[in-house]
Design a protein around this nucleic acid. Structure first.
Lengths: 124, 124
DNA sequence: TAGAAGTTCTACAAGATGTAGAACGTGCTG
DNA sequence: CAGCACGTTCTACATCTTGTAGAACTTCTA
């Protein structure tokens, strides 16, 4: 349930960029724009496609919509950082080797990030 | 490509438990056993099923097999910790908000783990 | 009241995964 | 040497997820 498809991910990225809730139409425009930047040709998505994806994301609990306003407006339920952090925890899981995993993980972050982590962890 | 299905995951768990390479038949027995523990009824898996899953895991680079020995023997390519740590990195990704994600993430680990992390990070 | 704009339903293709029989290879044994 | 037993690979199919969008329904508003 955790993994998102490419389009779902693209939609979430846009929602995360916008603090304000936005409509499916705006999303479609932004998506088309984005795709045009990268690829050469690609007909813009249908709005229904975007709506379907939004419904699925809503079912997954990642998106919520304002049903009050007529063109419904959608927003991400959690921030990108929150979501990513949750995913990382999910991956880390409740295995008995959590500390071993953390050890490996820590070995890979950049020096700058290591410094950030030290600061965050504070001194014992 | 990162996510594994339930059966794939179960197979990997068993391979991770065994440092020695093991055969598909042994895996099938272990899987049947495990399933019987939890669920009430469930006919054991066919060996071909296990072989299919092993082939797929091999294609994904998670498993390698000794083709020399006649009943091929399979082993995990990386340890569970390694694999999990890699997954976590993949999730963390190369976003610009890596540090923000790490901040959230750190806030959720247990005190004991936090201590472990401090030790691992050393003092600046 | 009819059309425009929006939402929900329904549908299908492609890929991943679980599941396993069919077919093929190969060494041992009568 | 022929055929079986055991093992591997091929082929197949059902289900679920995701991308994609038309069809159908709803609801203002001119």
């Amino acid at each position: 349930m955790a993994t998102l498809g490419d389009l779902e991910r693209a939609v979430m990225d846009l929602l995360w960029e916008h603090q304000e809730a936005i409509t499916a139409n705006i999303l479609r425009d932004l998506l088309s724009q984005r795709t045009t930047d990268d690829n050469a040709e690609s007909r813009p998505l249908a709005v229904t496609t975007v709506l379907t994806v939004l419904s699925r994301l809503e079912k997954k609990g990642l998106v919520e919509r304002e049903r009050a306003s007529r063109p419904h407006r959608y927003r991400a339920v959690t921030s990108r950082e929150e979501h990513t952090a949750e995913l990382m925890l999910e991956v880390l899981g409740s295995a008995p080797d959590r500390e071993a995993v953390l050890a490996r993980f820590i070995g890979t972050v950049s020096p700058g990030e290591a410094q950030t982590l030290r600061t965050l962890l504070g001194r014992p």
